[in-house]
């Protein structure tokens, strides 16, 4: 039986296409790094999944063809610094595929978002490499040199905007004296926002998670901003910084690890949005999307069992 609608691998492909705009924005501002990371990530994902599947004695081709490993690789590749050394993405994707997905029995059985599990693993294990971001456009030659460590390249590096702001605030600087706007990050976020809207229109993702996610960020950040606008960023900035839009439309919406009931999706999204801000503001890490998603992934079975929809006639 087939409804003529998209099948699972077509869904994955659509999600990959929708990432295009955000990736394009990243390319425009930071150069070739992002594309090299994506290629490295995809190759690693295909190799590690094939190897693991053959260890498990399962057919390789149909599973690879579902596109989920490729999507995981891309999501992780665009989350790490564009100039991170090559082994970062290789280690991260391998971990994500094997320990984030295959070890639970493959696609559909993983309780955690594999890409975010890989990200969290990298951030904890290699904090230096994971928080050093390039801050300028880098051409292809320089990118290859930097990523593969062929020769030392003079690239302007620094912390992300969120990191920088946090540091300044902790030093006692008032927000009004800080340059809190980041053109590149706003454009990248806008790119993911448009891609996400495309997925919504195609009905590939449901509106509940992104809406609640954004609402969660806005409400939590707004509350803090009302309490003290000297040390807390305005809520609209939280939305356009870091991985907010990527998280709202592409990461939290991973169907496998997210809540599956309509009401549950609202709760799930909102809690993640809330945690993102709390981790950003009070936590030790610059961005909170990965940890927030993983933490609320744990709560999914509980959320689902309390949000069963009304059954006809009951």
């Amino acid at each position: 039986m087939n409804s003529g609608e998209l099948n699972t691998s077509q869904v994955m492909r659509q999600v990959i296409y929708a990432l295009g705009l955000g990736v394009g924005a990243s390319f425009y501002f930071f150069g070739w790094g992002v594309l090299i990371q994506i290629v490295l990530g995809i190759v690693t994902a295909l190799v590690s999944e094939s190897v693991f599947l053959s260890f498990r004695g399962l057919p390789v081709k149909p599973t690879i063809a579902d596109g989920s490993a490729i999507l995981t690789a891309i999501l992780l590749a665009i989350s790490i610094p564009t100039m991170a050394p090559w082994w970062i993405i290789v280690v991260g994707v391998t971990f994500a595929i094997i320990f984030g997905k295959q070890i639970y029995g493959g696609l559909g059985n993983n309780p955690f978002n594999p890409a975010m599990l890989g990200y969290a693993f990298l951030l904890i294990s290699y904090p230096l490499q994971m928080t050093t971001w390039g801050s300028d456009y880098v051409n292809i030659e320089q990118s290859i040199n930097a990523i593969f460590n062929i020769s030392s390249v003079d690239i302007l590096t620094g912390a992300t905007k969120l990191d920088e702001v946090k540091m300044q605030i902790s030093l006692g600087t008032h927000i009004e004296n800080l340059d809190i706007y980041s053109l590149s990050q706003s454009w990248i976020n806008a790119g993911f926002l448009v891609g996400g809207l495309y997925l919504l229109i195609r009905k590939i993702i449901y509106w509940q998670i992104p809406t609640a996610f954004i609402l969660g960020i806005f409400a939590t950040a707004g509350l803090l901003f009302l309490i003290d606008d000297n040390i807390y960023l305005p809520p609209q900035l939280h939305l356009m910084l870091g991985a907010s839009m990527l998280g709202a439309f592409f990461i939290a919406t991973d169907p496998v690890s997210s809540s599956t009931t309509p009401k549950g999706r609202l709760i799930y999204g909102f809690l993640i949005g809330m945690l993102v801000v709390i981790i950003r503001v009070f936590g030790g890490y610059p961005d909170g999307v990965a940890f927030a998603v993983l933490l609320i992934n744990i709560a999914v079975p509980l959320i689902d069992s309390y949000t069963k929809p009304k059954v006809f006639g009951k």
Partner: peptide, 25 residues
């Protein structure tokens, strides 16, 4: 016949169910 793949809990079934069940669960 197109072979069955893993359930990704996308929830399409739950949207289509006329009696409000959660087929994915």
């Amino acid at each position: 016949k197109d072979t069955a793949r893993e359930c990704i809990r996308c929830g399409s079934c739950n949207q289509a169910c006329p009696v409000g069940l959660l087929p994915q669960q």
